[in-house]
């Protein structure tokens, strides 16, 4: 199968999964923005995306995309290191037009994955997961079950904590670097690029990715400073919520 056996095929898999994840992020970001304006509205979306079949299929699909993207990334990196040879250069100087992100995609990707773990722990483990477990007939505490669609609450609770707000900011920064190269790179790999569209795709990619990251960041900021609708939510003790990570 050429998607596995050929170098171009493997890159196509990376590109398609990457682009799909960018589209998901675009959707996720739009959804998050609602929380700034209306906590009820946001919670409605959360309920809508609870343990319903379509949401679960979507989640499974997403998980698959992440796994494929991740596994291929490691596979490609191992192959590429091997192709580079065992003897490294003593002196290396980065040419001017080579972006730093393009040479550090794996590192950035690992930061993104770690951030994803944190994110799942903060939100998904409290929201979709308990609902699924409950549906499967397992015991879930009532207090948890009551809050599964309270996305706004979790946002407020998480981001009022300065440590989480900082961690998420770092995560978003890494994601920005990863995506600015990733988006353009995917277009190039899919062969939709040429001399004329070179800069255009680069610009389009940068605009989309920056919008996505700004959107996410806006929610972090709103949560931390209690702006917009998120300011109306009472959060118990910020210090307590930080306990798990300290």
């Amino acid at each position: 199968m050429w998607l596995f056996n050929s170098s171009v095929g493997r890159k196509v898999v990376m590109s398609v999964s990457g682009i799909a994840l960018v589209l998901f992020l675009l959707f996720h970001m739009s959804m998050n923005l609602v929380a700034i304006f209306s906590t009820e509205g946001y919670n409605m979306i959360c309920e809508f995306l609870g343990a319903n079949w379509y949401a679960l299929v979507g989640t499974a699909g997403l998980a698959a995309l992440v796994v494929v993207h991740f596994v291929y990334a490691f596979m490609l990196t191992i192959q590429n290191r091997k192709a580079r040879g065992s003897q490294r250069y003593a002196v290396v100087e980065k040419p001017k037009n080579v972006s730093w992100a393009s040479q550090n995609m794996l590192v950035l990707g690992i930061i993104v994955i770690l951030g994803l773990g944190l994110h799942l722990f903060n939100f998904w483990a409290n929201m979709q997961l308990p609902e699924v477990l409950h549906k499967l007939g397992m015991h879930v505490e009532d207090a948890v079950m009551a809050d599964v669609a309270n996305g706004s609450g979790y946002i407020a609770k998480t981001f009022t904590c300065p440590v989480y707000a900082a961690l998420y900011t770092v995560w978003l920064a890494a994601l920005w670097f990863h995506l600015t190269h990733g988006f353009w790179s995917a277009i190039q790999t899919l062969g939709v690029n040429n001399k004329v569209w070179f800069c255009r795709w680069k610009a389009i990619g940068n605009v989309i990715v920056t919008l996505i990251i700004l959107g996410f960041f806006a929610v972090v900021v709103a949560g931390y400073f209690g702006l917009g609708a998120l300011g109306t939510i009472e959060v118990a003790a910020p210090a307590a919520c930080c306990a798990p990570c300290c």
Partner: peptide, 21 residues
């Protein structure tokens, strides 16, 4: 492409270092 892969060259990650050099 098949021959290139067979000979053990790496996968392109579009860093553009080749073009620059």
């Amino acid at each position: 492409v098949a021959k290139m892969d067979e000979l053990g060259f790496g996968n392109c990650t579009n860093t553009r270092a080749c073009e620059a050099e």
